[in-house]
Simulated assay, not measured.
Amino acid sequence: MRIFLLEDDTDLSELIAYHLQKEGFNVLCFSKGIDLLEKVKDERPDLFVLDIMVPSLDGFRVASSLKSLPYTKDVPIIFLTAKTMEEDKLKGFELGADDYITKPFSIKEFLARVKAVLKRYGTLKGGGIVNLGSLSIDLEKMEVRRGSERINLTKTEFLILKTLLENYQKPVSREYLLEEVLKKEVYDRTIDVHVKNLREKLGKEGEWIKTIRGVGYKLEAL
């Protein structure tokens, strides 16, 4: 798998690239966002790892550009940054990031999170089976099981769950759920009722669906 890494600290860039390559990844490093954007015109990687505070074109602006391009909009993004403020993290997720890792960080944790993003992305894209706690979610058959027990979800409940999985750790607005899941104009409280029922049916894993006040919901392990 090919990873594009944007990091202007040469020592850190080389360290990250070394460990990714040890895990079998093919890594191309950039110190400037504009160079990365030029390269994606010729080659589409499997993952972007972006530092935010880089010269000339910061990681947020690079991510915004990548999400606007038809050939990179579906490629997952991990932000790797010293910016630890909650508003920075929210901005990163609003721009479409799949994970946000703050410096300093453990290389082991970093590698684990890279693999988790790629696995989740590949599974969701391929319509495979996703594990959520003790639950097994079959995206193709639209089935959820805990062991041999099947959990009966309505189509709407399953689509909400799938959407939250696709945006794991990222806030999903009520408006988006109304437009993309229900695909009709209804009161936004209708979504709240579906989410309430979904939480109850999922049991302990239902607690992983968190309410983001004034926004909507996100799915995140406790």
Rank of each mutant, 00 (worst) to 15 (best):
G59L: 08
D9E: 13
E43Q: 09
S13E: 10
L15M: 14
E38G: 03
R44E: 13
L57D: 02
K39T: 07
F25M: 10
S31Q: 13
E43V: 12
I16S: 08
F30M: 05
H19S: 09
L15A: 11
K41F: 00
K39V: 02
E38A: 11
A63F: 10
K41Y: 00
L37V: 04
E23D: 15
V27E: 06
F48E: 00
R44M: 02
A17C: 13
I52L: 09
S31T: 12
I52C: 08
E23K: 15
D9R: 04
D46R: 05
A63I: 12
L50G: 09
L36V: 02
I16V: 15
D51Q: 14
P45V: 02
S13V: 08
E23T: 08
L20S: 04
V49I: 15
V62H: 07
D46K: 03
A63S: 15
A17R: 12
D46S: 10
V49T: 13
L20Y: 06
A17G: 11
V54K: 00
S65D: 14
K67T: 06
E38M: 08
L50K: 07
I16T: 10
L66Q: 03
L20E: 02
D11N: 11
F60D: 07
G59R: 08
S13H: 06
A17W: 02
I52K: 06
L15P: 06
S65V: 15
P45K: 02
Q21M: 14
Y18I: 10
L36R: 01
L20F: 05
K67G: 07
H19V: 05
D8S: 06
S64G: 05
E38W: 08
K67F: 07
K39S: 06
V49H: 12
Q21R: 15
L6A: 10
R61S: 10
E7Y: 06
T10R: 13
Y71V: 02
K32I: 06
E23Y: 11
N26T: 13
V40A: 01
F48G: 00
Y71A: 03
F25P: 05
K39E: 13
E14M: 14
S64N: 12
P55T: 03
D8A: 01
A17M: 09
D58A: 14
L50E: 08
E23I: 05
N26R: 11
D9N: 15
F25S: 04
G59F: 08
L15I: 14
L37P: 00
Y71N: 03
G33K: 05
D8F: 01
F30T: 03
